[in-house]
Simulated scan of single mutants.
Amino acid sequence: MQHAAVPVPRDRLIVPVLGLFLFAIAAGFLMSLLPLSLSGRGLSAELAAWLASAFYAGLLLGAMRIEPVVRVLGHRRALVAFLSLLAMTVVAMSLWSSAALWLGARLVAGAATAGIFVVVESWLLLVDDERQRARRLALYMTALYGGNALGQILITPVGVAGSLPFALVGLLLVLALLPPLLVRRGAPRLQVHHRLGLRAVKRLSRPAVLGCWVSGLLLGPLYGLLPLYLIQRPELAGQSGPMMALLIVGGMGVQPIAGALSARYSRTLLLALFNLMGMLGILVLLLAESVVGIGMALVLVGAAAFALYPVAIAQACQGQANSRIVSITELMLLCYSLGSVVGPLLAQWSTGSLTQLPLYLGIVFSATSIYMLVQAAAGTESAVMEPPAGLD
């Protein structure tokens, strides 16, 4: 029996959005906590890079195995399951300081996080109105990035020593469980489901697929390498933290704008324009000689980079039946995850020095903008085509 989802009522959106926001606070705090707590727990500082790789590997693996879980459990119970699994990895890491255990826990945490992303994205996208989809995606991204920013800010007052930081992360994840546990109505009801295999990527909108992949190529280095680049800028003098906050603020601020524009104009053209904005931001970053100039550049870069994923996924879902939404969001997360894994490695290999990180970002922005402009001029707003019999 195949299953598909009936759209969720608008007044029940608080369940996935509030759960996502609390999860994002916990994830943002944990992102900063793990590398900073290694020495205090007797672990090597070199483990930080491996922990990040393990997490993204889990994200990549999880992105390929989420749809069956959602099909069997439904959106609400799947969200509870993935949040619970993530909370268990935090408990394990707080109790045992073992490099092997932490690597395994982060691998599992990445898979659980992929599940949370796909469940919440598909939950919000299960609506026939394209404008509502765009607005809901903007709400999703604002909650996600706002929570991440708030979580990273908490690192200063809470600290990284002892068991309190891990207890706080666990508490936030337990609170994130409450909305889907307490509100039992409003989740999408599974009736018919259309499973799309990996080969379906070939039939998705090419600009949408590329947009998600490029989003990973950009955000992976921005999260992982940009802080190290900013530390080397003499103008900043220890202000790399606030500069990273400005990057995220730019990403948050652009979401309502991206959502409104995505509902009215060609999404391929919007992807081109946001990449052009990123090129402008990189140019300002290279020329800036003051804290204000660097801050303005990072706001532009953040707005451009963080706008690509929601616009691209909205384009991928454009005109699609609700029965395809879960599989499409799964495939889009897979594309993003591939970019996130490859991006930092490609940035280091292509430039050879962190001081040349803007060069890598500028090349990605410029090449993508040219491609999107060509596609927009050709009028390609392609959607998923019906597959030949037997390919699903």
Rank of each mutant, 00 (worst) to 15 (best):
L172Y: 03
L175W: 03
A176W: 00
L178P: 02
P180D: 01
L181G: 07
R184N: 11
G186W: 08
G186Y: 09
A187Q: 06
P188T: 02
P188W: 02
R189S: 11
R189P: 06
R189T: 13
L190H: 00
L190P: 02
L190E: 06
Q191Y: 08
V192Y: 12
V192S: 14
V192C: 05
H193P: 05
H193Q: 15
H194E: 13
G197L: 10
L198K: 10
L198M: 14
R199S: 14
A200R: 13
K202P: 08
K202C: 09
L204I: 02
L204S: 05
R206F: 15
R206T: 13
P207T: 04
A208T: 07
A208Q: 05
V209Y: 04
L210Y: 03
G211I: 03
G211P: 01
C212E: 01
C212H: 05
C212F: 03
W213Y: 15
S215E: 09
G216W: 01
L217S: 06
Y223D: 10
G224I: 10
L226M: 14
P227S: 07
P227I: 07
L228Y: 14
L228C: 09
L230I: 07
L230H: 07
L230K: 03
P234V: 10
P234T: 09
E235C: 12
G238I: 09
Q239R: 15
S240T: 12
G241T: 13
M244Y: 05
A245V: 12
V249P: 08
G250Q: 08
G251C: 09
M252V: 14
G253M: 09
P256Y: 01
I257D: 06
I257R: 01
I257K: 02
I257L: 13
I257C: 04
A258S: 12
G259L: 02
G259V: 00
A260L: 12
A260H: 12
L261K: 02
L261I: 02
L261F: 04
S262N: 06
R264Q: 13
R264Y: 08
